[in-house]
């Protein structure tokens, strides 16, 4: 009896008291009132786009002549242009090729960014070797690459995918290398003290520590990927949403321009939402 008493001096009640003391740490402030309702939040989020749509529609009422038609296309005209392009098969082809370029470039750039960020974040040698060089490359404005890539790779798929990859590389590289620098040294020491070697330490401590940051970097990279895609397609393409933009500009097709902008917004938001879901899961799982 005395043995078990010394062995378990912390009674269940004491544990409960300790837990109570621990509870307030790191809790998120609960949402209150009407904002607790998801439907209300969705409705609030949709409010400004709907108001803008209304203003757009009002500005372009035929005959009202608030804005002349050659300056602005009505929502209906944009919708019809979309239907028209879709019937000709162009819309699907353009959207698909743009998405393909973004995804390929994003995958390549993010993968390279992970590797380079990992090397620079984990190794002093690679930090000294790669850090300054990548800092310089990073300072080159994105559009400056376009002529070079076109000379080297012609106006094919390669030049566009490479440009998108350049865009996706840096956000991932930067967030991963920085996050690795800030991994809790105490935890790294624990890994060492419990017999983990370099790879074991990386897999059990460093990688889980930086995973939330990795997803932040990936989301930033995706935004950059779409940005660089449009740059690539504006400056030399025969297909894609960026091409729809530049063709609309030269033909004076405002409906096509507005359609392309809306499609880019939707595509960017959708792809970002997918990553946001993964990020939220990762943040819960790894922190």
């Amino acid at each position: 009896m005395t043995e078990s008493a010394t062995l378990r001096p912390t009674s269940a009640a004491a544990d409960a008291a300790e837990l109570d003391a621990a509870r307030p740490r790191g809790r998120r402030r609960p949402r209150r009132g009407a904002l607790a309702n998801p439907a209300v939040r969705v409705a609030l989020g949709a409010l400004i786009p709907l108001v803008l749509l209304g203003i757009w529609w009002a500005l372009t009422i035929p005959g009202a002549a608030i804005v002349p038609p050659y300056r602005f296309a009505s929502p209906l005209a944009v919708w019809q242009a979309g239907v028209d392009l879709a019937e000709r098969g162009e819309l699907g082809r353009f959207a698909a090729i743009s998405l393909q370029r973004v995804l390929l470039g994003f995958a390549a750039g993010a993968a390279l960014g992970l590797v380079a960020g990992g090397l620079v974040g984990l190794s002093r040698l690679f930090e000294s070797l790669l850090g300054p060089f990548l800092g310089i490359v990073r300072a080159v404005p994105s559009l400056a690459w376009v002529p070079l890539l076109i000379v080297w790779f012609q106006i094919g798929e390669q030049s566009k995918v490479i440009l998108v990859a350049i865009g996706a590389f840096f956000p991932v590289f930067t967030t991963v290398s920085l996050a690795l620098h800030h991994v809790d040294r105490g935890l790294v020491e624990v890994a060492r003290a419990f017999g983990r070697r370099t790879l074991g330490t990386f897999l059990s401590v460093q990688l889980p520590s930086v995973l939330p940051a990795v997803f932040t970097g990936l989301r930033l990279a995706l935004v950059q990927a779409w940005l660089f895609l449009v740059a690539a397609e504006l400056l030399g393409a025969s297909m894609g949403l960026g091409f729809l933009l530049s063709r609309g500009q030269s033909n004076g097709r405002l409906d096509h321009i507005l359609l392309a902008i809306i499609l880019l917004a939707v595509a960017g938001k959708l792809t970002d939402s997918v990553l946001a879901l993964v990020q939220r899961w990762a943040a819960r799982r790894w922190s």
Binding site: L7, D15, E18, A22, R23
Partner: peptide, 22 residues
């Protein structure tokens, strides 16, 4: 042995300092 069998599935942020030390 350290009296934490009921907390096996808890994350560290959900336990107290004394329990974390155990």
């Amino acid at each position: 042995l350290v009296g934490l069998d009921d907390f096996a599935g808890h994350r560290p942020r959900a336990i107290s300092g004394g329990m974390a030390q155990r």
